[in-house]
Design a protein around this nucleic acid. Sequence first.
RNA 1: GCGGGUAUAGCUUAGUGGUAAAGCCCUAGCCUUCCAAGCUAGUUAUGUGGGUUCGAUUCCCACUACCCGCUCCA
Length: 527
Amino acid sequence: MSEFTSEKKAILMEKIVSLCKRRGFIFQSAEVYGGLNGCWDYGPLGTELKRNLKEYWWRKNVQEREDIVGLDGSILTHQAVLKASGHVGGFSDPMCDCLLSKARLRADQIPPQSGTAHWYTGATHAESGWSTSHDFAVLIQAGEGEAKARKTAQQYFAQFLSDKQISPKTLELVGERLESVVDSTRFNPENGSLLTEPRAFNLMFKTHVGASSDESDESTVAYLRPETAQSIFAQFKNVLDSSRVKLPFGIAQIGKSFRNEINPRNYTFRSREFEQMEIEYFCRPEDGLRLTDEWLERRLTFYEEIGIPRDRLHIVDIPEDERAFYSQKTYDIEFEFPFGIQELEGVAYRGDYDLSVHQKATGKSFEYFDEETKEKLLAHVVEPSAGCDRTVLALICQAYDEETVTDEKGKEETRVVMRFSPRIAPIKVAILPLLKNKPELVAKAREIHQMLTPYMTTFYDESAAIGRRYRRQDEVGTPWCVTVDFETLGEKGDEWKDTVTIRERDSMRQERIAITELRNYLLDRIH
RNA sequence: GCGGGUAUAGCUUAGUGGUAAAGCCCUAGCCUUCCAAGCUAGUUAUGUGGGUUCGAUUCCCACUACCCGCUCCA
């Protein structure tokens, strides 16, 4: 994708979005009612794809490991849990808006400035009799001319003019007052304009528990969880006491989380409702950094196993000043989407921050007793946290391919192929009778279809020419098509009786295989 | 949140102040012995709500959604 221009990438993304709708992978939520901003529904094939991803993740990270157990926590979350975790107080960034340029700035990222603030209470225009009254100020730093204050203020008051023909320069400023300021963050460093007071944008969805609850009763407040991790920490002791796990061990969870994003963007990439696949891997403090690196490797291998090659992933070692204050190491795993390189997963070493805050808030011990060393300790945690919907989108973007094929007459056409790994492909095999008006072919094909359905997702199709049916399956990424033909019926000799043609999606190559071998042939390749 | 753009059938697009057009897809039938064949028939659309008008899909306003650029992404 990197060889494409941004324009071609935009077209590519449009094609992917179009295919997703046409073939039933992803629909806009409540589309018939005009859509719901930042929400998406998965159609029949998208649902299969996402299930395959989640099931493979669960199998690899829980079922095939002795040291990781699962959890399925409630989405509605006790406010105390999120107060302890810091989400209620800190899960929002105070933001300021520049009164002049309307730029939005994070309050904590504004460098402190000193100088003289020129305050005004309004402006008038003598000729037209127009006037306005707003408090405004401009910061003049040492070395800057005072004329800048008046010019900036005139521009600010000019936005209230109804007559746009009036030049800002002709406005009379009212109520000038000077104030000396030191290390102030109330002014835009770019232009000196006054900023709005910092406002908190809390990104959590809030609700009230209990049918007759009073909306103003703070004690009934609950939140839709903004991440799956907190129920793992809150249930740490219960899991420890009930499942006889020993350090190091992990608790894994797949589930929905909700963030009231100000600005959902890039198709399903940043949604307000999304699914996470998280592991909290608890360990002794001295093992944390090593395990973080090990988890990074393990996660990269996972992406390779589902068909996202390592060279399409970028590993970012987050520098200290950008990490959360409690994290001693954080890696981001990013994917080259057509709309840019974006994060799929974070692997963060969080120390004992999470258990310690819940221990402190509850006053109960979250400590682990090590039988061998006879010591009590607060476990550290390594958190590989993957975005499920983001990974689905990455799988779709990675799989999408167009190739030019030439038919027997020399005519060129485009073949759209979703090159999903067989492991995650929504449909594993399509069963096709060569012709639908030959009852023997249809009956045999249906028989094979019935034979395979208990073992994998299959699709039966008898309509249209065989070539068209192959292409349909290419476009939804079905790795194999099985065609029942006249050889199958024994009409071309006994040596071919009860064999079928199996056609491979990527190479379009065909080979003959006995019906009795079909099940194992496919199962060996989709596991 | 700011600025710009877009909204016609499942998809891609035409077009119009007065009966909305096509290709692809899809469905049914016929035909068809391996890569989107052919024939016949058929379903489906002006994002939502107002305004102007005899009449609005078209002009105006608002809303909603999506896309692009900023911003943001704890």
